[in-house]
Each structure stands twice: as C-alpha cells, then as structure tokens.
C-alpha cells in the first residue's frame, strides 16, 4: 500500500499531459472554447497538478527536503522527471494566465512548448521504472502504458468538461476507441512477454492474474469501451453523463492497472 501515492501521482500526471494536449489541440484546431470554460479547465489542471505534487511528496520520508530531488539531474531520471514535470506545471500556469488574458496566440505558442516538456516529463517518469532490478517494469511496455494512460484519460477528461459546459460536442470517441484497441493489444503483448521472461516476470504475471483487481480492471475497461463505442455510433450518447461515466470508469480501470503495476512488481 505504501506505493499508493505513486499510483495517484503517475495517473494524475499522465492525465494532465493528455488533458493539456487535448485542450490545446481543440483550442488551436477548432476554437470555439469560451474563455470561461477554457480557464476553468486550465485551472482544474493546475489544481490536479498541485494535488499530484503534494501526493508525490507524501511518498517521501523527508517531504520538506523534496526540493533536493533535482540535484542529480545529470544522472537520475527521477530528478529529470521532477524538473520536467515542474516545468510542465509552470507552463500550464502560464497558459492559464493567457486563458485569463484571453490571449489565444500566446497560449497556443506556450502549448507547443508545454506539450513537448510534458512528454519529456512522462518519458522520464517511465524511464524511472525501466530498471533491470524489476523485470516486470523493465520493458517498453512501461513507456507505452504511461503514454496510453495519457491518451485515454486526458482527452476524455476534457471532453467531459466541455460537455458539462456544453461548449462544443466533440466526438472524442473517435480518438479514444483506437487507443483502447492499442491498449488492449499492448497489454496482451506485455503479459505474453512477461510469461516468456525471467522467473520474477513470470511470478509478476501470476500474481497479477491471481489478483481480483486485474479482473476488475478488465471489466471496467470493457465497460468503458462499450460506452464509448455506443457514443461513437450514436450522437445521442455523446452526453455529459456518458462522457463522465466513461471517464470515471476508465479512471478507475487505469488506477487499478497502475496499482497492480506496483503491487505485483517482483524484485530480482
């Protein structure tokens, strides 16, 4: 249980990346997001970002000395994650400012930079876990999984927010369904590679399959996929309720998955 803060931190940070990129993209491509809505969503990013930072500090024995964690930037992916994630949040703040100022060109320009830094942050985050000491983590799956979480949760979050505000009814399912499909394929590939790997990897797979959360994750994943499929085929289903429900279910699903990621990690 002691990794719970990390579950929350990684999920939130990935959600933020996906969410930010989605908002920026919609804002840039389609426009039509009111200042108020854009600002609200942007502020919600900042709140979530703040929470994620606080929670991640909870994981430290010495939260007050968390600032030192950037000292080893030259070597440590953890330092890098913190630096880039910090920068990412800073840029979100700046972009929020330009929502407030209603300065679309500036916030779009910042969007480029923020998205790039955010991607580097999540990349660094994934690299932290790609260590030989824990075979179940030491694969590109970790990288895929982290970015897929971004792609699944972020856009859906923004879509749900927009739907609440009735700003614009984006057909987000069109983007998410392929991602869900890719996710499923990656997962199948991942578990078969675990089973073909080191004994510790096999053990991790065994523990995962034996865990009730795994089956709950699959069920929620399928449920969310079902909802999104419905909303894809029928615009009536592109409602606040459906998007919120799909988001909530998918958030649960990803969190369960992430929990298992930590819980079943067998050390060499």
């Amino acid at each position: 249980m002691h990794d719970l803060p990390l579950v929350i931190f990684t999920i939130l940070s990935q959600l933020l990346l996906g969410g930010f990129v989605a908002l920026w993209w919609i804002d840039r491509k389609k426009g039509g997001i009111s200042k108020k809505t854009g600002l609200l969503i942007s502020i919600s990013f900042l709140v979530l970002g703040g929470i994620s930072l606080l929670v991640s500090m909870l994981h430290l024995g010495q939260p007050l000395h968390a600032y030192r964690a950037i000292l080893n930037f030259g070597v440590s992916w953890l330092s890098r994650e913190i630096v880039f994630y910090g920068a990412f949040l800073g840029l979100i703040a700046l972009s929020t400012w330009f929502w407030y100022k209603d300065d679309a060109p500036k916030r779009r320009a910042i969007g480029w930079m923020a998205s790039f830094i955010g991607v580097v942050a999540i990349f660094s985050s994934a690299k932290i876990y790609m260590i030989p000491a824990i075979p179940a983590w030491d694969s590109v799956n970790t990288l895929f999984a982290f970015f897929l979480t971004s792609l699944l949760l972020g856009p859906l979050y923004v879509a749900a927010c927009l739907a609440i505000k009735r700003d614009s009814a984006v057909n987000i399912s069109g983007i998410i369904i392929p991602v869900l499909f890719v996710s499923a394929i990656v997962a199948v590939g991942y578990f078969s590679s675990l089973n073909a790997g080191l004994p510790e990897a096999v053990e991790a797979a065994k523990l995962t399959f034996g865990h009730v959360f795994f089956w709950a994750r699959i069920a929620t994943f399928l449920a969310a996929s079902g909802l999104l499929l419905l909303s894809y085929v029928n615009s009536k289903w592109r409602s606040v309720q459906i998007y919120s429900a799909a988001f909530a279910i998918l958030l649960a699903s990803e969190s369960l998955g992430r929990f298992l990621f930590y819980e079943t990690a067998i050390h060499l």
């Binding site: 030192r68 080893n72 070597v75 440590s76 330092s79 260590i131």
Partner: peptide
Amino acid sequence: ACKAVCPVG
C-alpha cells in the same frame, strides 16, 4: 544502480 537513480545524489 542505487547511485544512478538517486535524485539527490
């Protein structure tokens, strides 16, 4: 490996 990951050096 300990040295490589430690964020505070």
